[in-house]
Design a protein around this nucleic acid. Sequence first.
DNA 1: ATCATTGCAAACACTTTGCATACGC
DNA 2: GCGTATGCAAAGTGTTTGCAATGAT
Lengths: 147, 147
Amino acid sequence: MQQNSIYEIKEFLRSKGINPSLQRIKIYQYLLKNRTHPRVEDIYAELVNEIPTLSKTTIYTTLNLFVSKGIVSKIMIEDGEVRYDIDTTPHGHFKCIKCGRVYDIDIKPSIFKDISTDGHQPIEYHFYVIGICKECLEKEKEEVAQA
Amino acid sequence: MQQNSIYEIKEFLRSKGINPSLQRIKIYQYLLKNRTHPRVEDIYAELVNEIPTLSKTTIYTTLNLFVSKGIVSKIMIEDGEVRYDIDTTPHGHFKCIKCGRVYDIDIKPSIFKDISTDGHQPIEYHFYVIGICKECLEKEKEEVAQA
DNA sequence: ATCATTGCAAACACTTTGCATACGC
DNA sequence: GCGTATGCAAAGTGTTTGCAATGAT
């Protein structure tokens, strides 16, 4: 899916067995455009402007539907903060403790092979890092320079 | 801390600046003995037998204290299920989707070095795998054999 | 007597459920 | 017109907070 026209989203959802209602299309479109691992809160805040009757219930049920169909993944990093990611390919996340943003990080698939799961059968690998992001590091440097 | 006598736990907590109350000692001791990444629920169910007046509030506040002192770590794998781990050294976890148990898995420190965090400054690395554990795989085999 | 810890009850935040309404084919 | 999706309100869950009672020194 390179372009993200409403038409393409409709077709895509249909191909996954999902009835493309307005709300579902808009939520999917939001995830395509905002690859920032948004929370339900974020999606609601933005879309309620376009669809004033939108309820969080619909966002919850829609995201659960997308996850169950395998087109979106649910990510949990910390504090019971649930985020959604339209990129379902194996990759890691970096969460900044200063600004709270979550970035994608590349993980070479070979790394997963190097990890012994001790006789257990792996299905999904999850990896994330907590730290301070590039932008926040820059800001800190500037502040020090100014002082 | 090889042996886990009450005396040693007391000394240990004191050394970390934690006043060793009965509840705190028992909770710490529980974590030492049950290296199964228990939830608040599990700790409560067990300890309420020994301390009938014990409340979950105390478990929550105690665990938060332990985490803030760096002697226990909080792990979140899925579903907003919060677990506590007395092993604060870097390692990964394996969660079985059949039985729900969480196992420790070794992670070679070199793996962390191989991961590019894309210019962000890493502080903590977290790694977990979802799958089916050894025991559940065995059980499945037996069931097939019997059929 | 003082200060910290405990534990009940209430508050909270997030998510799901029940159900009546509205929508689309 | 029928089956599905929506969205309100209520219920449910896990955790924290306010505060009075208790405990330790």
